[in-house]
Design a protein around this nucleic acid. Structure first.
Length: 345
DNA sequence: ACTCTGCCTCAAGACGTT
DNA sequence: TTGAGGCAGAGT
DNA sequence: AACGTCC
């Protein structure tokens, strides 16, 4: 997944486009997240499915504690080009793709439920979640995209955050696409061609061309077409039926769907506890606070995305738009957090 | 000399206690 | 499972 | 920092 070796290339050839931050630097910001990446992270880290739900729960709380407004983006139908990769992946995992999609959807339903109860907006991407995240940050609907893979930059996402959940300071890395393009002296179009040469999810690459040569070739010849005219076709054969043009369109064309209204509301503590403890049989002390702590300032529902949509503590739309729940209660753990901060200070 | 590839290994979440 | 880092070897 | 637990 992602663009092969792009992170290395940036670190080596355009370190000026990277800044090192910490999570507290994003207080007040709206941040889009690729939900499937998050879920997969937890799924590979802990074998148990319920525990990965708990991971999503904790991580979301961490955002809220820092007064960060998360937007969870869910994958839509994968584009045609990606199907080959998905098939291959599912096959090597020994799963049929229909099996896979069913399990995923039941899993994502639970994640969706949890996130709704937490009062954070969940949106369905028209296609690839990464692509939609990129569009959201490009249009200004969100301030940044937090993801572990580099696709976002190829899709034109202007601000990418990696390791946002890092515990230690200065471990969050922020990539600036405008700075990157300026340093590399590339246009977005040229950068997309570079990413295709590096290797992406949507088509093959030219064997024998790695990061170093790919960058030099693109900087010199500007397009894949011109690169192909200037390399040794014998030593670097172009893949037969190479679908690079389709991949290019995928990266450059906007998904098209308008940014939906984003709305945050207070967590529905009662249902949250019910869901996690009753349905999922988690220990209550892992989920709830003990007393009735002060309401947290960060969850003020009257603030919203600058891009529009005023109030409305309405909820709903079952077809995957925004759902929100309203409660007056504060979220678990907040009390403990407050105590910790008090003792630290 | 430099670049790319393949093969290897490892670790991957978040929390609390010590 | 995947990705990232280290090291071998073959290619340019 | 290292370790054990979460279910």
């Amino acid at each position: 997944m992602g663009i092969t070796k792009l992170a290395d290339l940036i670190r080596g050839d355009a370190p000026g486009s990277i800044t090192y931050k910490e999570i507290g630097d994003y207080t007040g910001k709206i941040i889009a997240l690729d939900t499937s990446i998050i879920v997969n992270q937890f799924r590979s880290a802990v074998p148990n499915l319920t525990l990965s739900l708990l991971g999503v729960f904790y991580r979301t709380l961490t955002f809220l504690e820092h007064d960060i407004k998360p937007v969870f983006v869910f994958d839509g139908d994968p584009p045609e080009q990606k199907r080959a990769v998905l098939e291959k992946r599912a096959q090597s995992a020994g799963w049929s793709s229909s099996q896979r999609s069913h399990t995923v959807s039941s899993k994502t339903r639970e994640v969706l439920r949890l996130l709704q109860l937490l009062g954070v907006p969940c949106v369905q991407a028209p296609g690839d979640a990464e692509a939609f995240c990129a569009q959201l940050v490009r249009s200004g609907a969100v301030d940044a995209v937090a993801s572990e893979d580099m696709d976002t930059l190829a899709f034109g996402g202007t601000v990418l955050l990696r390791q946002l959940n890092a515990k230690r300071v200065s471990e969050v890395t922020e990539y600036s696409l405008p700075k990157l393009l300026e340093i590399l002296q590339l246009t977005q179009k040229e950068f997309v061609d570079l990413c295709i040469l590096l290797g992406c999810d949507y088509c093959d690459k030219i064997a024998g061309l790695g990061p170093s040569r790919a960058l030099k070739l693109i900087q010199q010849h500007r397009t894949i077409e011109d690169v192909m005219l200037n390399i040794n076709r014998k030593t670097h054969p172009v893949p037969v039926g190479w679908q690079y043009q389709a991949a290019r369109r995928l990266f450059l064309d906007s998904p098209g769907s308008e940014p939906p209204p984003l709305q945050w509301s207070e967590p529905n503590e009662k249902e949250l506890v019910n869901f996690l403890c009753q349905e999922k049989h988690l220990r209550e002390e892992k989920v709830t606070k003990d007393g009735d702590g002060g309401v947290r300032q960060n969850l003020s529902p009257q603030e919203e995305g600058e891009r529009g949509e005023k109030k409305g503590r309405r909820q709903t739309d079952e077809s995957g738009r925004i759902l929100s729940c309203d409660t007056e209660k504060t979220v678990c753990r907040s009390r403990r957090i407050h105590r910790q901060k008090a003792t630290e200070d």
